[in-house]
Each structure stands twice: as C-alpha cells, then as structure tokens.
Design a protein around this nucleic acid. Sequence first.
DNA 1: GTCTATATGAAGATAGAC
DNA 2: GTCTATCTTCATATAGAC
Lengths: 195, 195
Amino acid sequence: MARTQGSHSDITGPRVRAAALHLFAQHGYAAVSMRQIAREVGVQAGALYNYTPDKQSLLFDLMQTHMTELLAARDDMPDGATPVEALEHFTRLHLRFHSERPDEVFIAYMELRNLTPENFTKIEALRRSYEDSLETILRSGVSSADFEVSDPKIATMAVIAMLTGVNTWFREGGRLSLAEVEQIYWDMVRKAVGA
Amino acid sequence: MARTQGSHSDITGPRVRAAALHLFAQHGYAAVSMRQIAREVGVQAGALYNYTPDKQSLLFDLMQTHMTELLAARDDMPDGATPVEALEHFTRLHLRFHSERPDEVFIAYMELRNLTPENFTKIEALRRSYEDSLETILRSGVSSADFEVSDPKIATMAVIAMLTGVNTWFREGGRLSLAEVEQIYWDMVRKAVGA
DNA sequence: GTCTATATGAAGATAGAC
DNA sequence: GTCTATCTTCATATAGAC
C-alpha cells in the first residue's frame, strides 16, 4: 500500500532537528533562517511548522535533549566508588560524551542567550544539576582527604571548563586518539585536585 | 566658538564601538541590528556609516583591538624568569586581563564564526600567537625538569580553557576577590603541570 | 504532510537635504 | 556629521489548495 504522496512525518521530524542542529552550530541560531533549515531538509519553509511551533522551540528542544542525555549518562555512575574512582569516571565520561557531540555542546554553551527567559531557566537547572554531581565528588574527596582542593566550587568550574575545552581542538583521526586524550586529561585533573 | 550643530565625530566613534561591543556580547552579532546600535548611541542608523563601512568591520575591529591588547600585555612578561615564575605570571595576567574585559572575551570566542574568511584568518593568527607563548613556557619547563607535562600542546589548551572559564562565573564583588581567585587558579595550574 | 502564496515586519545599506 | 526617506532583500509565520 503506497503512502500518501509526500507524507513522511516519521522521518522528516528527525531530519528537521538534525538540520537545525547542524546549521545552528555552524552559523549560530540568530543567523540561520527557517528557509535554510527547510532547504537542507528538502522541503519548503512552511512544512517545518508541522514539526515545531516556532524557531525558538527548535532550539530549546535541541538543548533540552542534549542536557537530558548528559544527565542520564551521569546517572550511570557506579555506586560505591572511591572519590578518586568517581572523579576518573566523571572525567572520562565527560570527555567521551562531549567529544562525540560537538554540535550539541557548541549550541548548549553558545546559544543560552537566545533562549526565552522561561526556557533559559529550565536549561540552567539541568546544567546546575550536572555541575553539582562533580562538586559532590570533589567535596567527598576533600572529606576523605583524598583530594587537596581549597574551594570545591571553583575547582568544579575549573575542571569542567578544562574538559569541555577539548571540543575546541579535538578531532577524531587527528594526532591523538580519544583514549590518549582521556589519559592525558585525567592525569592533569588528578594532579590539579591533589589526588 | 560653537561647533557645527550635531558634529561629534571625536566622541561618537568610540561610542559606536562601545555600543556594538555591549550589544554583540549581550545578544550576539547576528541578532543585533544597526538600528539597535544607533539607538544606544543616540543617533539615526544612517549616521553609523560615518564610523564603519559596514557591520562586519565593526565586529572585526572589536576583536582585533582586543587580541592586539592581549598580545601587548603578554609582551610585558619579565625577562629571565624561571619557567615556574613565567607560568605564574601568565596565569595571573590571563585571569586579570580576561576578568576585566568580559564582553570582549565573550565576543572573541563566540563570534569567530561570524567573521568573513579573511578576517577569521587574521584573528586566528593573533590567537595562535598567544597560545604559542604559553606552549613555549611549558616546553621550557619540561626541558628544565620543572614541569611534568606529557603533551605540552594539550596542556596549553587545557590551561587556557580552564583559565578563560573564569568568565562564566566570576563577578567583581562576589564571594571571592580577584586576588583570591588568582591564587586558587594558580594553585591548580601549578599542580596540574606538576610544578 | 507538503505545497504555493502571502501577510507583515525588519534587516543592511545608501541618497540627498540641512 | 546627522537627519529623513527609501531601495532592496530577507525574515517568521500563516492560509488554504492538493
């Protein structure tokens, strides 16, 4: 039985999000038009509005999905790990997760200012939750005297910034493999917190 | 002797750049219109074109000025310092310079993709020159066995990312003074490179 | 579900009066 | 040097035919 001509809701939806992701990351949310997204998908601009109520929702959905997946990955953290093990796990997970999703990460950091206030609040809460999990690890390591960290809050921000910075230069197939990069960063993180 | 009515070239020029800086940092280059800039300056849109040939030049000038000032500050590095002293100097200078110029830093990192290819190439060369000065410090410290760094290139990117990240949270008048922040970051940098 | 056509507004940049 | 007015293009979003 042939489908209705031109009816592709099940595949067009993901394609719209993929095109928006790619174009927002490359040119920035404000610089990308709905017509550009439609062109990349291969439909006319009007058809996009079957998949998103507006451009803002497209951005918000991309960021919310990204942050939700990040938090889900974080929740795979093994129970009963020592602070050092937990920190190594966090470090490697962060590097792997972020290096696999350069476009999502770029958008999540760069397009915060293009969210409506309501949407911004929601995304910020997700990000804060992620940061808190690292801060908790650092505080537990300070309590157990495994780490030497004078200010866990600042150390949290410093470590996350250092790790996320990998996306500014790392490319699969370059001079170093991801496994090598993980090892080098873990070595620096470990030393930085005095473990 | 009264000036020609409405003639203010000597003060309007800097005001145009200041308004563009502020608005680009807040909303992003692509999202800011020439009319918005004009409104902030207190002139009509057409008058802006006495001070810049177009919007792109406005962005490029801001970024070029910022990077040139950064390189000038770097050149104040004292001669004859040990690798550890040079690294501490770099760390504190970077933190001070960047925390004093949040808008410029934000633009310099976020709006690279909105430069024309020619302009992008010029800004990238300036940034590369800055990164090279840290890499040189790290390599000299490895040679002298003051540092323990397995990959100076990665360590360079990691340290710069960590330090620049201070702009995502540090505000003058907050919980910590800049001097305290400097000390905490220098402590982490020092340990991260094994000094 | 997708198309064409369009309503409505705003963008960058320029011309010419003062 | 700044203004007003305008050219031209493009934007988001919607209406209604197929």
